[in-house]
């Protein structure tokens, strides 16, 4: 049995304080009634009201969500295909280039990805706007999706697909009826990852956006360059809140599933001895 030593407890406490205190303070000061964010002047929710009435932010939020939903869906489809090709595709011409292109965007600095895409869009004369951001986001987030999905596919028991073929499935049916339902959790987390990456992206969006389509991070960026503002604190609090609720709910669901599976297994072993 492991026991927590004082050293370990201290390092964990300090470490997590470092990770979480800035965000806690941010949330705390979003309820500050003073315009001066670092001076506490009493509880108030007025900045949330201001935020809701700020149409520029609302418009940006709509654009951001639209881009995120479309690009993460496209990225999930393309990324899952790419993962399947990498893990199960066998040999084909240009395989090395393909796997290089799948993994390179993960380590490519955002400024370079953004710059290169902008030059392409200008080169082919594509007007910059929602479409170009979607294309850019799909490209880099499909690589993340494909990493998530392929790590699941690698551990996937290949005999399940073989069993499906053996029982009369065509290769496509085997994927549709057996592989996809089993790897679905990985595909869903890939989608969520792509979605948050898109929501979060500032640099690539700055390069590929046009004047008519400002995303939320770009909006936040131009606001925070001028310093701390309570409105941004309120917006951050909402975003942090949504993520926290989502992640906690997801982990509770998965914990519940694991516990249930263990319970079922024990019941099964008992019932047959």
């Amino acid at each position: 049995m492991r026991r927590a030593s004082w050293f370990n407890i201290t390092s964990l406490t300090l470490g997590f304080a470092f990770l979480y205190l800035p965000m806690v303070l941010l949330v705390f000061y979003s309820f500050n009634s003073s315009k001066l964010v670092t001076v506490w002047a009493g509880f108030s929710t007025k900045w949330y009201g201001e935020l809701i009435r700020n149409e520029a932010f609302l418009d940006a939020a709509v654009v951001t969500l639209k881009v995120a939903v479309i690009s993460s869906t496209l990225a999930t489809i393309l990324g899952t295909m790419a993962a399947y090709v990498l893990v199960r595709g066998g040999k084909f011409m240009g395989r090395t280039l393909f796997s290089g292109m799948v993994y390179a965007p993960l380590v490519m600095p955002e400024v370079i990805t953004g710059l290169s895409l902008l030059l392409l869009f200008i080169g082919i004369g594509l007007d910059r706007g929602v479409l170009t951001i979607v294309l850019a986001h799909t490209t880099f987030s499909m690589c993340y999706v494909s990493v998530v999905v392929s790590s699941r596919l690698v551990t996937f028991d290949r005999s399940l697909e073989e069993a499906a073929l053996d029982l009369g499935c065509s290769p496509f049916d085997a994927f549709r009826l057996v592989t996809l339902p089993i790897i679905a959790p990985a595909v869903i987390s890939g989608w969520l990852l792509a979605f948050t990456l898109s929501l979060d992206d500032l640099v690539i969006a700055s390069f590929t956006t046009g004047p008519s389509s400002t995303t939320l991070p770009i909006k936040i960026w131009s606001a925070v360059r001028l310093g701390v503002s309570p409105e941004i604190n309120a917006l951050s609090t909402i975003m942090i809140g949504v993520v926290t609720v989502g992640v906690i709910a997801a982990s509770l669901i998965s914990k519940h599933r694991t516990v249930k599976a263990q319970h079922d297994l024990q019941a099964a072993e008992r019932g047959t001895s």
């Binding site: 005999s159 499906a164 073929l165 053996d166 029982l167 057996v178 089993i182």
Partner: peptide, 29 residues
């Protein structure tokens, strides 16, 4: 191809489809 042969196989790992019930596993083929 395997899906066109009157041959069936029982796999070492059993390869039961985890997302289907016992009934649906048997009915699959």
């Amino acid at each position: 191809p395997p899906n066109k042969r009157a041959v069936n196989m029982m796999f070492q790992s059993y390869a039961l489809f985890p997302h289907l019930t016992v009934w649906d596993n048997i009915a699959f083929g």
